[in-house]
Amino acid sequence: EESVKIVRLVKNKEPLGATIRRDEHSGAVVVARIMRGGAADRSGLVHVGDELREVNGIAVLHKRPDEISQILAQSQGSITLKIIPATQE
């Protein structure tokens, strides 16, 4: 059973501070990098390897990473992410 986590981040004009990529094996959209000091890093709630399912209620599974980045870039104020946390080894 996948544990889905709802994360709310507050982002002003600054970038979210995370990059995403598509996992070639599973097809999932995952967090590739977290930039120090960005909104994602400061929240402490988003981690490399987390699978991104939704951004502000928009399912991202069938979107290209550049489309998802665009949605994230255009979002201001509160951003709600639905993520499946990376499995902690």
Rank of each mutant, 00 (worst) to 15 (best):
S3Y: 13
S3F: 15
V4H: 12
I6W: 15
I6T: 15
L9H: 05
L9Y: 06
L9A: 04
V10T: 13
K11C: 14
N12Y: 11
N12E: 10
N12A: 09
N12V: 09
N12H: 13
N12I: 10
K13P: 06
K13E: 13
L16H: 02
L16K: 01
L16N: 01
G17V: 08
A18R: 00
A18F: 15
T19W: 11
T19M: 11
I20C: 07
I20L: 15
I20W: 11
R21T: 14
R21A: 15
R22P: 04
R22A: 08
R22I: 14
R22N: 07
D23K: 06
D23V: 08
D23F: 03
E24R: 11
E24K: 13
H25I: 13
H25E: 13
H25A: 14
S26Y: 02
S26E: 03
S26T: 14
G27P: 03
G27H: 07
G27C: 03
G27A: 04
A28K: 15
A28H: 08
A28G: 09
A28S: 11
A28N: 07
V29L: 14
V30P: 00
V30K: 12
V31A: 02
V31M: 05
A32H: 14
A32T: 14
R33F: 05
R33P: 02
I34T: 04
M35S: 14
M35A: 14
M35N: 14
M35T: 15
R36T: 11
G37H: 07
G38R: 03
G38M: 08
G38W: 02
A39S: 07
A39Y: 09
A40L: 13
A40M: 15
A40Y: 02
A40Q: 00
D41C: 07
D41H: 11
D41G: 06
R42W: 02
R42S: 06
R42H: 06
R42E: 06
S43C: 08
L45R: 09
V46P: 01
V46S: 00
V46M: 09
V46I: 15
V46D: 00
H47E: 06
H47W: 01
V48Q: 06
G49E: 02
G49T: 00
G49Y: 01
G49F: 00
G49A: 02
D50M: 01
E51I: 09
R53H: 08
E54I: 00
E54M: 04
E54A: 09
V55K: 00
V55G: 01
V55S: 00
V55P: 01
N56M: 01
G57L: 00
G57F: 01
G57W: 00
G57N: 06
L61K: 15
L61M: 14
L61R: 14
H62P: 05
H62A: 09
K63S: 07
K63T: 05
K63N: 05
K63E: 05
K63D: 03
R64H: 14
R64D: 14
P65Y: 08
P65D: 15
D66K: 10
D66Y: 11
D66P: 08
E67H: 06
E67M: 05
I68S: 02
I68A: 03
I68Y: 02
S69A: 14
S69F: 08
S69V: 11
L72Y: 04
S75Q: 11
Q76A: 09
G77A: 08
S78T: 14
S78Y: 10
I79V: 13
I79R: 03
T80E: 14
T80R: 07
T80N: 07
T80C: 08
L81E: 03
L81M: 13
L81Q: 03
I83N: 04
P85V: 04
A86E: 05
Q88V: 11
E89Q: 11
E89C: 08
E89T: 10
E89S: 14
E89I: 11
E89H: 13
E89G: 11
